[in-house]
């Protein structure tokens, strides 16, 4: 399949005021195929936005390059930008203007005009189900409505490629569902290539044809979901939420040795919420086990015997969260 986006050794280094430097992206190599939804999954601060900003021409790479439909973003940026739409994480709209005025302005910047522009603006307002609010100022819209106009603004030029940087941040479940469905529609009905960044495993799992997992500025794993979950084997993940108590080392060892199928255990101690607060997050015990449901009664019995206050238990089959956990030792939300 033809490549739509290709990056080679994409690197971005920022200077701090004290003269030191921080490497936000450390040599990312990506290949995104035409017509697929590719998700960049990673916790906040992993470098997803910086990567997408470099690929969209907002940020100049310190090193490396990206090509969009064969055009270099650094040396042929005009041609490259014509092939893409951009939906940033922020609501990049003028709050003083109406939805229609915003879309009309950005449409004109793509060279649209006259009836073609009016038609395209109306189509998109219909597409995001806001045609009835087209004359209202953006600052009167709810968060979800703003996100939908933000998405529409990225589609004005009917691009073959669209970047979406965490487009569901801070919105209600209904609007989130609508946006996720829209993303799938763009691929399925319009054949669009989508580069989607998220820190939510569920979104990446639902949408993606392929996923790149990012952490500390690097792609640490890339492939289809099946390929990625194979990396952690067939293990289930048993997640125990425990009260504010430390789990003793010997208890962890006992669980591992006494229960058949348990391969390894991660223990996250309780953490104080803030310096000013006496409250703390509950401790978590994450146990990887083959045939997890079979091992569960024995594990609960052992913990019970040690007077561990079990608040909840969840059994998770291999997923992207498990992959991230396996690769980094941390949960995506940590």
């Amino acid at each position: 399949m033809q490549l739509m986006v290709e990056t080679r050794n994409l690197r971005k280094t920022y200077s701090r005021p004290d003269g030191s430097t921080i490497e936000a992206v450390k040599g990312v190599d990506l290949e995104i195929r035409q017509g697929e939804i590719f998700s960049l999954l990673g916790p906040n601060g992993a470098g997803k936005t910086t990567t997408i900003s470099m690929i969209s021409g907002l940020v100049t790479p310190t090193e490396g390059d990206a090509t969009i439909g064969g055009f270099s973003i650094t040396t042929q940026s005009m041609q490259a930008k014509r092939l893409m739409g951009f939906v940033p994480q922020e609501i990049a709209l003028y709050p003083e203007l109406s939805a229609r005025q915003n879309l009309a302005f950005f449409g004109r910047m793509y060279g649209l005009g006259g009836k073609a522009l009016s038609r395209r603006v109306y189509e998109l307002l219909e597409f995001v189900d806001l045609a009835d609010r087209q004359k209202d100022r953006i600052d009167t819209f709810s968060g979800g409505m703003k996100r939908r106009v933000n998405l529409a603004a990225g589609l004005l030029n009917s691009p073959p490629l669209i970047y979406m940087d965490e487009p569901t941040v801070g919105i209600d479940p209904q609007s989130r569902r609508r946006i996720l469905d829209t993303v799938k529609l763009l691929r399925d009905e319009q054949g669009m290539t989508v580069l989607y960044t998220t820190h939510l495993m569920e979104e990446a799992e639902e949408l993606s044809d392929r996923v790149g997992i990012m952490d500390h500025g690097e792609i640490i794993a890339m492939g289809t979901q099946a390929e990625l979950t194979q990396q952690v084997g067939e293990e289930d993940r048993l997640e125990f939420t425990i009260g504010a108590q430390e789990i003793a080392e010997d208890l962890v060892e006992r669980v591992q040795h006494q229960t058949a199928g348990v391969t390894r255990i991660l223990s996250n101690p309780p953490e104080q919420i803030s310096d000013d607060s006496s409250e703390s997050t509950p401790a978590r015990l994450i146990i990887f086990a083959k045939r997890g449901r079979t091992a569960l009664p024995q594990i609960i019995q052992t913990l019970d015997a040690a007077d561990v206050d079990i608040q909840s238990v969840a059994v998770r089959e291999p997923d992207l969260e498990a992959v991230f956990l396996a690769l980094t030792g941390r949960a995506l939300r940590d």
Binding site: L58, R82, F86, A92, Y94, F106, M109, Y110, A153
Partner: peptide, 14 residues
């Protein structure tokens, strides 16, 4: 801050 400047940057403009 509101990213409208960055949105302009993502358009085919120098």
């Amino acid at each position: 801050r509101q990213w409208t400047l960055q949105r302009l940057m993502a358009l085919p403009l120098s």
